[in-house]
């Protein structure tokens, strides 16, 4: 099978100006990937599928990845002019200082596709596309017209990550119900707080149950709520209808 460099060269030869970048993968798996420009993605995908040598006729896996905005602290060398008194004479001197600067790296959403060839038995070739940001410019071209197997997987990405695939024949939520507003696989998704009760005293869940109770107490709506982990037994109000 061709290496990613060879595949990129083949794409550039067939579609000049496609602007394919190689994203190297430091893991031992050695599965490097190709980043496509959204504007050229469909043409490149068609080329990958129909090229006789590559024949990547089988799109196995399509998935989303969320890269939230990252605050990066980096040290920058800054040259400043300071007034100094040297040997009794006041003069301007240049001085280099290290300064810690905080910078927000804008995040993005990414769609990753794994391609294989059934006709030739090779793979995987990994291609990926990035959105501009995570909020309003989240459009990517759909690869469903090229590979049908992306149909449900792109719907799933739309549902869980909120990437809008233009050109998708039937872009609806796949897993969550219609009317649901969030994109739960995003890393900043806030889960509904329904951890009122946790009988097993361990783990993340218990922490959440305690947090829930603290919130209820702060809001003054603690009636009927039992002490989670506190041993305070509030009376059980109301007999269950099924009792």
């Amino acid at each position: 099978m061709k290496t990613v460099e060879e595949i990129r060269a083949a794409i550039e030869a067939a579609l000049p100006g496609a602007g394919v970048e190689i994203v190297s993968n430091p893991s031992v798996s050695g599965q490097h990937s190709l980043r496509l420009r959204p504007s050229h993605a469909v043409a490149v995908a068609k080329f990958l599928r129909d090229d006789a040598e590559l024949a990547l006729d089988f799109l196995s896996n399509a998935t989303g990845v969320d890269w939230p905005d990252k605050e990066v602290t980096e040290k920058v060398k800054v040259t400043r002019t300071v007034r100094k008194t040297v040997d009794g004479v006041e003069q301007d001197a240049e001085e280099t200082v290290e300064e810690a600067r905080k910078r927000v790296e804008p995040g993005c959403l990414e769609a990753v596709y794994h391609l294989f060839s059934v006709a030739r038995g090779h793979g995987p070739v990994v291609i990926r596309m990035k959105t501009v940001n995570r909020t309003d410019q989240v459009e990517l071209p759909s690869l469903t017209p090229v590979w049908r197997s992306a149909e449900f997987q792109e719907r799933e990405i739309f549902d869980l990550y909120g990437i809008v695939f233009s050109g998708h024949p039937d872009l609806r939520r796949l897993l969550m119900w219609e009317g649901f507003k969030d994109h739960p696989m995003r890393r900043d998704y806030v889960e509904p707080d329904d951890f009122e009760y946790e009988p097993t005293a361990h783990d993340e869940v218990l922490k959440r149950a305690v947090a829930h109770q603290a919130k209820q107490e702060a809001a003054g709506t603690v009636a009927g709520a039992a002490g989670v982990g506190s041993g305070v037994a509030a009376g059980r109000e109301g007999k269950g209808a099924g009792a």
Partner: peptide
């Protein structure tokens, strides 16, 4: 009812109240 973020209501108080955990 399936709401915008969660089920509404989160439980049916006629059937379920938060059980008492005694430790």
């Amino acid at each position: 009812v399936q709401g915008e973020h969660d089920l509404e209501p989160a439980s049916n108080p006629g059937v379920w109240t938060v059980p008492v955990v005694i430790r």
